[in-house]
Write a protein that binds this DNA or RNA. Structure first.
Lengths: 339, 339
DNA sequence: AAGGATACCGGCAACGTTACTGGAAACCGA
DNA sequence: TCGGTTTCCAGTAACGTTGCCGGTATCCTT
């Protein structure tokens, strides 16, 4: 039945062009050692037959692939999208193409295929190097270049780009404290991620620095999703002596806070102030004051680093820290304590 | 210097496990024909050595790859992102992983690597099937499943999912006309794309149906980018007897119109009405009335179709048409003609 | 005109994997 | 005990490509 229309190989091209396979391979790879006439003829045949080289076979045999891999567990949330935008831009400016590898959901694969597996899969097989987002491990037994974005632990010998999560958090808190807030709620992120912990540290230290006692009741946990933003926000806003400000440790959760505030009939910033973290595009429209961590720039820079490593250009710094920056919009107001 | 730490192959595993290569391959692929004891031992060795199978080699040899390819010229614009969201969701629900292939920019590759090249590259090499977005051709000499999203010309034998571009455009225009508008500007999309032409047809036909003469001066061209939205908007708004409404043939360009309007000191909808097409997330925040074409749903459905084709489940319909729907927000107002 | 350089090209092996074939051992029923 | 299954595994041949080596012509130099 399925008569398997075998696809056209380099051998077919060689045969119809009346040359050897190696010669075809040479014109395919732009080697000089072939007569202009033969070359043109072969190119014609290639076009006629609609041949295109088999990536798998080529990858297996040769070194340079002009392909960069980007590994993400999920590509459908704003953070991932911003990363991709940055990577995409760097890719567009380069000679490389991009292969984004995803399983669609962090939770999809069980214990069998771990991060390491994915990386080796892509790296060994098919690309010249990979970018890993928020990886857990820091060492891989691969000979291929790897650049990590926001890794859990930075390893001095492995290139990585970070955001200054701690400082960003500190800044945001100082801003709120500077506005006169003393009771500030905090909605945390996924605890297994370094970024979440560092943002929490920033929260705690800022209060400590300002001499404000920490009320553990005001710290709730979340997982960076809108849903937990809603839950956390609701919890905080239902407290009797409710906080005058909330610091959500990412914008996605801050968006949840907006939603629950509206449902509860509370206005932002009139009834309470709100600060987020990330500066995803949506924040602009919401008027959310947040900490910009230049996500897409991180993707951009990481890609450039990777390309350098691939081309064996030495890196000035193995780890690059992108400075976060507070973006003040209109989700916060001064709190004078007299209301 | 670079002593090329050769990576671990199946042969290494076989040797240290004291079995043959084929046996290792068998446990790797979950074949039954191997003793439980041997199997466990091999799995242990695999874990110890940190082996992971070389995708390229496997792809070359075997049929099933559990991998779906998505080919996009650029992944950094809202339309592409929405598609990916949908595809991502379907992927997450399936046994397949996803490989997004992009060169980062439509304009990057010259004549050498065409759409066909990309498709065969990915399809022949490495994946079980591919999804192509807005492809120009309708036939490919590949034996692998292909599903197109919004193809230029639909071919009855090739699975594709469309939006009802013409009807959507017609609806939007009828809405504007129903509000009393007679001078309606139109900003067109990339002429080489079918969607652009069909939206323009909708514009023309709606006017014709309403008995309103077409003023060619009110039709300007664009290419679906914000930049041309700005230019087109400026051009239209500078006309002496300027249109009372503008229909931008996608949201991205409508966003450009917002920008230029603000710069010119014109308010929407007080000074003129605006309608877009696509319903990208940003539109919600802008309050833009637009035609929802359920982009992410298109990605979702296309992926499901592809998976069916791969699994040789017959499709009910080769081409699926997703109905567009007008989303009324607050960028339009009634025009009574007395101002 | 002869020797050497150069331009061009073909053949072979190898990349790491899986499909296929077949064969040894173990088991089973009588 | 013996033929026949069954279980398990090893060996070999591919898959489509490129790297390497070497072999012809052709051209240049003196």
């Amino acid at each position: 039945m399925n008569q398997e229309k075998r696809s056209i190989t380099i051998r077919d091209v060689a045969k119809t062009a009346g040359v050897s396979v190696s010669t075809v391979s040479r014109v395919l790879n732009g080697k000089v050692d072939v007569a202009k006439e033969t070359k043109n003829h072969i190119l014609e045949v290639i076009d006629d037959l609609g041949y295109s080289t088999n990536l798998a076979a080529r990858s297996m045999r040769s070194q340079k692939k002009n392909l960069i891999g980007l590994i993400m567990p999920d590509i459908a949330y704003p953070y991932a999208i911003e990363i991709m935008k940055g990577v995409n831009q760097a890719i567009a400016e380069s000679e490389f193409d991009l292969l984004v590898y995803t399983s669609g959901d962090v939770r999809k694969r069980g214990h069998i295929t771990s991060e390491q597996k994915y990386i080796t899969l892509l790296a060994k097989s098919i690309s010249d190097g990979v970018i890993v987002v928020a990886p857990v491990a820091s060492e891989y037994n691969i000979d291929k270049p790897i650049v990590s974005i926001d890794p859990v632990m930075s390893h001095p010998n492995y290139p990585a780009v970070h955001a200054t999560n701690y400082e960003g958090s500190l800044n945001a808190m100082e801003y709120l404290i500077g506005l006169g807030h003393k009771r500030i709620g905090f909605i945390g992120g996924r605890v297994e991620l370094e970024s979440a912990n560092r943002r929490l540290s920033g929260y705690r230290d800022a209060l400590k620095n300002a001499g404000i006692p920490i009320d553990e009741q005001l710290i709730v946990s979340g997982d960076y999703t809108t849903k937990t933003g809603i839950e956390g926000g609701q919890h905080l806003l239902k407290i009797n002596d409710r906080p005058t400000a909330i610091f959500a440790s990412n914008d996605q959760m801050a968006m949840g806070v907006y939603q629950i505030a509206e449902k509860m009939g509370l206005r932002i910033p009139e009834d309470f102030s709100l600060v987020g973290f990330d500066n995803i595009p949506e924040s602009k429209y919401l008027g959310l004051t947040t900490v910009d961590q230049f996500i897409s720039k991180m993707g951009y820079v990481a890609t450039q680093m990777l390309i350098k490593v691939i081309n064996e250009i030495p890196l000035e710094d193995q780890t690059l820290r992108i400075k976060t920056q507070l973006v003040v919009r209109n989700s916060c107001r001064r709190y004078s304590g007299d209301q």
